[in-house]
Simulated scan of single mutants.
Amino acid sequence: MSIAGHNSELSVGEQRALMFHHFNLIEAQKGIVRSAQDALKKLKKTAKADGLVMADLDYMARCAALEDPDIVPAEILRRAEIASWFALPVNFQPDMFVDRTPLEDRAFEEGKAAGLLGKGPEAPYDAASAAGQAWLQGWHEGQRIMREDLQSAMEKRNAAKGGDELIQGGEEVGDPFAEAAE
């Protein structure tokens, strides 16, 4: 997949690295914002303790914000029709959507995604197992891809800008890949 626009001179890997770079910076900033939401979390916890279902409260907020009152009934009808296509709740087959990918292959791809996301190398599988080893190999592959493609993407983007407004990692956030590279 190639993303059209001003980054079209970048390779697919470089585009991915650049996107993950910005994704990680944005996610780090979201973490800072989350720390300011403690009061809201406390209110939600109190509501749960009172036996309320948060999804119901969220739905109430959505309904309260709607300008067109016909939207909700139409949505309910659509969802009921979709549920009928799956014969829900009668004859529901819980294994219908089971992932049949071999465990080691899935673990490798999960590890690779974790590496691309800049997550730590802690596998969700036993480290001594084949799945744990595959996950760790995937994590290393994701880290390698990010290092190489992000560096290449940054060099190209900075060269294109001629030294003005160079693209750099966030100064306050720190490099999520620095620890892994050591």
Rank of each mutant, 00 (worst) to 15 (best):
A131V: 09
A180K: 05
L103N: 01
L166Q: 10
A131T: 05
V98S: 08
D95T: 11
G163D: 07
W139V: 13
F86H: 12
F92I: 01
G132M: 07
E141K: 10
E122C: 04
A178E: 12
Q143K: 09
D175L: 03
A114T: 02
E110D: 11
Y125E: 04
F86W: 11
F86K: 01
N158A: 07
M96R: 14
E179T: 11
A178T: 08
H140S: 12
A87C: 15
T101C: 07
R106L: 15
A160S: 15
D105A: 09
K161M: 12
G169F: 14
P94H: 01
E104R: 07
E155K: 06
R157P: 00
P94A: 06
P124K: 10
T101E: 06
P94Y: 00
A113F: 13
M96H: 14
L166Y: 02
R144A: 11
K156L: 11
L136Q: 05
M96A: 15
A181Q: 04
G174H: 04
A160V: 09
E155L: 07
R147Q: 12
P89C: 04
A87T: 12
A128K: 08
K119C: 14
P176E: 00
V90E: 08
G115I: 04
R157C: 07
P102R: 06
A159V: 00
G138S: 03
G132V: 15
L150R: 15
K119A: 14
P89E: 01
Q93M: 11
D164I: 13
S152I: 05
D175K: 00
P121N: 13
G162M: 06
I145H: 11
A114N: 05
E165Q: 11
G162F: 01
S152R: 09
W139H: 13
E104V: 09
D95L: 05
A153V: 06
W139Q: 07
R144I: 05
L88A: 09
L103C: 03
G174Y: 05
S84W: 00
L116H: 02
A180P: 11
A181N: 01
G118Y: 05
A178G: 00
N158V: 07
